[in-house]
Design a protein around this nucleic acid. Sequence first.
RNA 1: GCGAGUGUAGCUCAGUGGUAGAGCGUCACGUUGCCAACGUGAAUGUCGUGGGUUCAACUCCCAUCACUCGCUCCA
Length: 442
Amino acid sequence: MAKKEFGSQELMEKLVSLCKRRGFIFQSSEIYGGFNGFWDYGPYGVKMKRAIENLWWNYMVETRQDVEGLDSTIICHPQVWKASGHVDQFSDLMCDCKDCKARHRVDQMPDQTVCPNCNSKNLTEPREFNLMMKTYVGPVFDEEHVAYLRAETCQPIFVDFQQVRIATRQKLPFGIAQIGKAFRNEINPRNFTFRSREFTQMEMEYFCEDENSMEIWEYWKNERLRYYREVLGFSDDVLRIYVHEKLAHYAKAAVDIEVKFPFGWGELEGIHHRGTWDISRHQEFSGADLAYVDENGKRTIPTVVETSVGLDRTFLALLGNAYDEEEAATKKEGQETDVRVVLRLPATVAPIQVAILPISKKLDENAQKLFQDLSGKFRCEYDVTGSIGKRYRRQDEIGTPFCVTFDFDSVNDNAVTIRERDSMEQVRVNITQLKDYFNDHI
RNA sequence: GCGAGUGUAGCUCAGUGGUAGAGCGUCACGUUGCCAACGUGAAUGUCGUGGGUUCAACUCCCAUCACUCGCUCCA
């Protein structure tokens, strides 16, 4: 079916409104006026977010023998971020020109008292700009106790690389995966949850020999693309590859998988060849031996291929591509049709997979049993309030793929009606076969 | 960070220097019994926040916060 087209701003407004109204995403600290760059996931949001996480974890870790999981701390030894380059590269002295409002890096100004843009001398004092969130460890708030909230989840993976390898007896090539929060003091958070200051990353670092690292990089690029197509259901016309032209000095290749967001194309995942940079830097800064030694005694500093996903972006992209409106018949007085809002989400990520709806409150008791039965196996919701049509539309709006309706005949024939979200078609299924049906369809 | 715009009920939005509004949604009851049905009733507002002007401010002024758009930024 052809989806309705929306203007970018129009769709974003609809999404933000739906997210708030139905409990997907709230602005953080809203009763205090909100907090720029921070978002809370509400009841449906957290269900969907975890579903996306679990899919990734299952695909990247559970079903693979060559990838191990990790859950590291958000706050690491400050040296981690010196070694990674974040303290120096994320930190610049900047000053503003009070006349032309331009901002300059102090170390790039030929004369630090003159604005390179308008030659004004009316400059602010140099101030430190750092994209890493800073905190203090211990009760004394002085420079010696400064620590940082991780700006990316991959650095602790590199730091723990050797411990994971020894504990799991993995041989090259193998990967370590982690899902967790990362923090950046973005100057300008924008586009709803797309760029925020606290966000969740799903990263996998694959350690390998340098000679076949490009094949491995190709492998992961294709594998991840396949994932977006086949597992998350993105169509080819909303996916594309962006090839980095400027590479970091240590990297051999880098692409981003981009997806069409309501506001335009944006990065969803980076597939980056990181060379031996990270491991060798941590070896240098820590003094620890992080080399991999094979059965012949050959020492290798592993080359790293990274797949790095923004979970919040995946969430937003799924919502944006799922949102649809269509004309639907209505019994409302004075109108033939009504607008049906429907999230065409894949069943695997829908916050509610099966809604159990008794056609009448008189059937409450019987239908409750259905809920008890199915809720352990699928994400279920029970709703008895309002007309059946209204309840179907409520479920459409949050992307529930299946509604199970228990009616007056169900008591006699032990069968229920399954109503499918996109087609609105119904099938009669025996209650004993419900689980099989949903196993096949979800 | 700069510039412009916006901020009133859960959502979408009217509104006027003099008692706070609608539609939708929500809840209850009745009716109905497969696509936002109908009827009756109900609840819900620091008018973003703080300050100022005024006899009186949701309205005018200032500041601030948040959101949107454009630029900038995004190792």
